[in-house]
Design a protein around this nucleic acid. Structure first.
Lengths: 88, 88
DNA sequence: TTATTATATACGCTATACCGTATCAATCCA
DNA sequence: TGGATTGATACGGTATAGCGTATATAATAA
């Protein structure tokens, strides 16, 4: 089964931003460094991590790639429902 | 482990679009119907599925939610690398 | 505290998403 | 073959992302 530690479920841009920020910190990078790896401004990384809903998909995938991540699209599960709700 | 049938790996907006289109078809919906569920135009669904890189994150999550899906962010794996490369 | 680093925010600019509406093109069946 | 459905594309409009640059605030270390 999937790894609940390293697999981050996201249903909103905000949750995506939070997950990316955790990954970036785990790699010891600051926003400027990630910006350099992706060709994006530090301010753009800031907006992405803040969960700005208007962020472009390309911006997300630029960050995903630079952090060595990938996205999985799957059906919502009961288990993941519960975990998500715990966050509120 | 994760389900390779239902879990769709995406590293690009195009792959996201392809995955969403498969899910929509599996649910017997057309773009207009999904547009109504999400409050988006049929043309916007078309662009999302076409993998337009400028698509807004909110648009993605509107569709994700309407299709009963969720996103997982995880580290790239060797296995998933191979699967992705097989597509080309 | 003070210096340093990290992140958030601002301004003017260009590019483009998404809107409503409409049409065109392709696919599907009867 | 021909009508219906589906998806792609167009136009003028408004809203906003991301740009370079700069600064302000926040967090951390000395």
């Amino acid at each position: 089964m999937s790894d609940p530690i390293r697999d981050q479920i996201a249903r909103t841009p905000k949750q995506v931003g939070d997950a990316l920020r955790r990954r970036r910190h785990a790699q010891g990078l600051n926003q400027r460094a990630l910006g350099e790896k992706t060709g994006l401004r530090q301010a753009t990384i800031s907006a992405l991590e803040a969960g700005e809903p208007g962020t472009r998909l390309q911006t997300l995938f630029d960050a995903i790639a630079a952090l060595g991540l990938e996205i999985v699209i799957r059906e919502r599960t009961r288990a993941s429902n519960e975990k998500i709700e715990d966050l509120y």
